Computed example of a mutant assay.
Amino acid sequence: MSTSDTDPRLGVQVVHRRYVSRSDVRYAGDLVNGAYALAGFGDAVTELAIRTDGDEGLLAGYRAVEFHAPIRAGDVVEFSATVTRVRTRSRTVALVCSVLCRAEPDRGVTAARPLDPAVVAVTAEATVVVPPPS
């Protein structure tokens, strides 16, 4: 059963930002693994569930995970989670991980620059399950 299209939870968004450190690197070229983005999505979805339903909920699954660009050490990434569907006990959430800043090691050890526009690195959709209304 779906709730009304006017549900106030529709369109609610949470944004998290994170610096990608060297300790996050798993592969040559200073690349992190795909699970890095999924962990960031999980944190954003948890906050979103708290804000919309007063409970952390349970992440039931991801769909349509797509990797568009690499995430590297020295990046500043942003994870956004937006409620796109509200059902009685579940929420569908659109997820985007964007790279906002990127290290430039060729210019110097600590050199970096903001990206304009940001680069979309990963997109996905998630389902979070929340307790029944009381």
Rank of each mutant, 00 (worst) to 15 (best):
T88L: 04
A39K: 14
G54H: 09
G57V: 13
V20T: 11
G11E: 10
S98M: 01
Y27W: 11
T88K: 04
V65A: 11
A44V: 05
T82D: 05
V128I: 14
D116P: 01
T92V: 09
T52N: 07
P131G: 07
R102Q: 14
S2T: 12
R113I: 09
Q13M: 13
C97R: 05
C97M: 13
T3L: 15
H16M: 05
V129M: 09
V119L: 13
P8E: 03
V119F: 10
C97S: 11
S21Y: 02
G57K: 08
D55K: 05
N33A: 10
T84M: 01
S4T: 13
E47R: 14
L59Q: 03
F41R: 03
T84S: 14
P132H: 06
I50G: 01
T3Q: 09
P117A: 07
V76K: 01
G42N: 14
E47D: 15
V129I: 14
V93I: 15
M1D: 10
S134Q: 10
F41N: 06
V130K: 04
L95H: 08
A37D: 02
Y27Q: 15
R102E: 14
V109I: 13
R22G: 14
A124N: 04
R72N: 07
E125S: 08
A37R: 02
A94C: 04
R26F: 00
H16S: 07
V129Q: 08
D30H: 03
A111V: 00
L48T: 02
E104Y: 07
G61K: 02
D7Q: 05
V99F: 02
V25N: 01
F41Y: 02
R113Y: 01
A35K: 11
T84G: 06
D75P: 05
G34K: 08
T46S: 09
D53E: 13
V20L: 03
A118Q: 02
R22N: 13
P114N: 07
